[in-house]
Design a protein around this nucleic acid. Structure first.
Lengths: 214, 214
DNA sequence: CGTCATTTTGAGGTATTTCAACGAAGGTGG
DNA sequence: CCACCTTCGTTGAAATACCTCAAAATGACG
């Protein structure tokens, strides 16, 4: 829920402005270049922000989970496309409606600033992750990143993976095959066990060691 | 100057809060992990935000030029180190002094929001750039990125390059040698001519073609 | 003008990518 | 309920591109 970081008053303010929308799996919320009318906050579920390159390749810039804000615009247009990975609930707010509210409630503006700052840090984190040379290292860091978004899974060592290998590849800047091979290696060495849309950490110390460095 | 996007009143507000500081070339403004007391805005000059990895490698997360804001914190500490590439003028604002001002001037908060949003877009742009397989492609995109920061140089085809090859390598996620070779190739093909801390575009269409795709 | 750092150039090693084919899974319709 | 089909995932072998190590050349600066 979006209430995690907000006061009750702010919740009311936002609730009055925002519309709750349900997005089906694989549904595209908006496309790169479309007029940017809304900003969004992810309630439940997961989405990806991606970009199709002239070469035909696709790059996933970010995965969005609960409480993540998205809908960045440049010159009034979205800079990348957003698609739901599974059935997802979002809250959307008209861009022009947001400004007057921020004028009245600077505290809320501060919250947004914090959120975008968080997004920026996350983006830099991804840059560091993709900078690694080895595919297994990248995948290991990716798994740990996913785990941070599933606080409940920390205890049970289970990691939810709503995205496909192909999407992981587009995010980690690897080929689909390399992701598969890296996963195979982690499984062969009994570090992680992969199931349908989820992973289970078997040997955390070793996972940490593989994910570390670089 | 920072006045580009601000109203006169906002300039006054900020001027009253901010301290003008001069940073010598190679001087480190702050280090990763240090208590984050200030946020900064680059006036004149150029800086780099970097991070030293356990492996000994160094990653440059971003280059900062005129009007760029930096000084992101996480839990009250800077997340990366910042060093000046040459003599640079910055304006710094105490973090605790900023909050009350934003409360009084939501418009200013909006400006900050826009700035951070811009940073985020730039970070994603870098992700796309580093995603390219070929070193020459990455370097070509990098040159075009630099050109966007030197609006005056667009006409004369000159690009200022305050950073060293090594720093470019750490930014593009390449080895220093690869950057050198990529530059050599661009020079050999008469696409770009490199001088001391600057580059001149000879054949823009071809540079665009090399930078395009991926 | 000498010293030191930066940059360039060369050759070999290693990682991922690519191309190709196989196997598995999930959804659809008969 | 099963067969079919499309999508996704896995595995293998060769090619490409960068990385590493090493040494020479260039440039910066006192």
């Amino acid at each position: 829920m979006i209430r995690r970081l907000l006061t009750t008053r702010q919740q009311k303010t936002l609730a009055a402005l925002s519309t709750r929308i349900v997005v089906d799996a694989r549904q595209v919320l908006y496309r790169e270049g479309a007029p940017a009318g809304f900003i969004y906050i992810c309630g439940t579920g997961a989405l990806k922000a991606y970009r199709d390159l002239p070469s035909g390749k696709r790059r996933v810039l970010a995965f969005m989970f609960e409480d993540d804000a998205f809908g960045l615009a440049e010159n009034g247009r979205y800079v990348n496309s957003v698609q739901a990975l599974k059935k997802t609930v979002c809250y959307r707010i008209a861009r022009e409606a947001l400004m007057p509210v921020l004028r009245q409630d600077p505290e809320l503006g501060w919250q947004f600033l914090c959120k975008i700052t968080h997004e920026l840090r996350e983006s830099q984190r991804r840059a560091l992750m993709v900078g690694r040379r080895s595919a297994v290292g990248r995948l290991a860091m990716f798994l740990k990143m996913l785990e941070r978004h599933n606080p409940d899974g920390c205890m049970t060592n289970l990691i939810a993976m709503p995205m496909s290998r192909s999407e992981i590849a587009d995010y980690l800047n690897l080929s689909l095959e390399s992701v598969s091979r890296a996963g195979g290696q982690l499984a062969r060495e009994r570090i992680v066990a992969f199931g349908p849309h989820q992973a289970r950490i078997i040997d955390r110390p070793r996972l940490d060691r593989v994910a570390a460095d670089s």
